[in-house]
């Protein structure tokens, strides 16, 4: 059972206090978008063994959504950050690079 730290209220809690919400940094495609773009937005997901970015909600806490960078193989948590962003903050990316040199995930590296 994972432990995570909510970047909004600062509480470290057990997984049961949070709710996982799938992949982070999805770009929404609405009316007018191509079938390919819409399919990618709705269905296509990364399934990495290693660095991954996810959405979590502190559902039995402050109620805020946040994003987490973690390793799906070792369950190491590189960091959590507020959801109001379209890409991982530089300090999180630096932390990952220090531990997993040469990592990449979608367009991020």
């Amino acid at each position: 059972m994972l432990t995570l730290t909510c970047p909004c209220c600062g509480v470290s809690g057990e997984e049961t206090e949070f709710h996982a919400g799938g992949e982070a940094h999805l770009k929404r495609y609405g009316p007018g978008s191509s079938d390919n773009d819409f399919e990618g937005y709705l269905f296509m997901r990364e399934n990495p063994k290693g660095v991954h970015f996810e959405r979590w909600r502190h559902v039995y806490g402050c109620g805020k959504w946040f994003l987490a960078a973690r390793c799906t193989a070792t369950l190491e948590v590189f960091g959590t950050y507020p959801a109001q962003t379209t890409e991982p903050p530089q300090d999180i990316k630096d932390k990952i690079t220090a531990k997993r040199p040469g990592w990449s995930w979608r367009d991020f590296a």
């Binding site: 919400g21 929404r28 959405r55 909600r57 559902v59 109620g63 805020k64 959504w65 959801a83 109001q84």
Partner: peptide
Amino acid sequence: HAWMEDWLQCEWW
């Protein structure tokens, strides 16, 4: 309620 919060916090913040 959670659905509305999700869109407000993560898409149209």
